[in-house]
Design a protein around this nucleic acid. Structure first.
Lengths: 167, 167
DNA sequence: CGCAACTTAATTGCGCACAACTAAATTGTG
DNA sequence: CACAATTTAGTTGTGCGCAATTAAGTTGCG
């Protein structure tokens, strides 16, 4: 059962323990980066009264205008289990309204209130401050974004096609 | 309200709206990558009966042996608010024991049970499967890890020194 | 038409992250 | 020694993420 017991693998670069360490690094690193980002957003968004996920929702609404929960979820890769309570909080804060669509009673249309639209003016400050916090220039940000997007695509593909066991 | 209606903005590299879009990309991308990773770990760890954060804790214990909650938290950047209930669940699963240190009654020592140590044998499979799911080779993983670590360091620095407002 | 299959949100339940607070033990200082 | 400050875990409360389920509406097909 030992993966690497074959004596013919002389130049093998990565015994099991090294894989383990490397993997630890990448998952540690990504997890840490994600939470570090969360911390900065928390600080920057505090005087807007938004959490980071709420800010993402508002960004989509600012860009696309009114849209149903389903579409919102597609943009953000989130389902109604996450969005329903989040949107309820945004509604309680007076930033959005939710109304059943007349044409399709299953669908709930989410639209900005005047207050929600107005918040955009104060939010334009956010990206610059976040960018400053990263210490990266535009090229680096774009490059990193591209790598992360490729990574996400690969990981999603694994989800739909759970990687055949190696013979 | 048209974003690009001003005729004078011909060669401007980064108007506020572009910053907004770029920032959206990087935060979207990081957030999406982090959650996509979570999904793959969820699948891979299912038959070990561990969640991803629990797996991280077990990794630290496998590497460093017994250690107090405080040290565990430093390795993982997590506080007792997260670790206390998580460790309680690991204890309920029979993987670790927690005991007050005799030398310092404030401290709680976390140590692996026999079952917890034994789980390591089954966990050696995990990193290879995760690596496969990323679709990246070793060099790419290392490079990405390095970038993410630099990013995290920068973001943490911002946390301790909340970026002076530009005049 | 009538009914099964599908779609869309909402709800429930569990676990993690983090801020704020509490409780208890230890350390430092006058 | 006495007492304030610090350290260490735990608790509470809020919000996010996701799986599983439910409820209601729509669509398609015989």
């Amino acid at each position: 059962m030992n993966k690497y017991e074959s004596a013919t693998l002389e130049r093998m670069t990565t015994p099991a323990t090294d894989w383990l360490r490397l993997d630890q690094q990448i998952c540690f690193s990504l997890n840490a980066a994600s939470r570090a980002f969360g911390g900065v957003y928390r600080v920057v968004l505090k005087d807007l009264g938004l959490t980071y996920p709420q800010y993402l929702v508002m960004m989509v609404l600012w860009e696309h205008g009114e849209l149903p929960v389903k579409k919102l979820g597609e943009h953000l890769r989130l389902d109604s289990g996450t969005l329903s309570p989040l949107l309820k909080r945004l509604e309680a804060a007076g930033l959005v309204r939710r109304e059943r669509s007349a044409r399709d009673e299953r669908s709930v249309q989410v639209r900005l209130t005047g207050e929600g639209s107005a918040l955009r003016e104060r939010a334009v400050e956010v990206p610059r401050r976040i960018s400053a916090a990263t210490g990266l220039d535009l090229a680096e940000i774009q490059d990193l974004r591209a790598r992360l997007d490729r990574l996400t695509a690969a990981l999603d593909a694994y989800g739909t096609d759970p990687a055949p066991e190696p013979s």
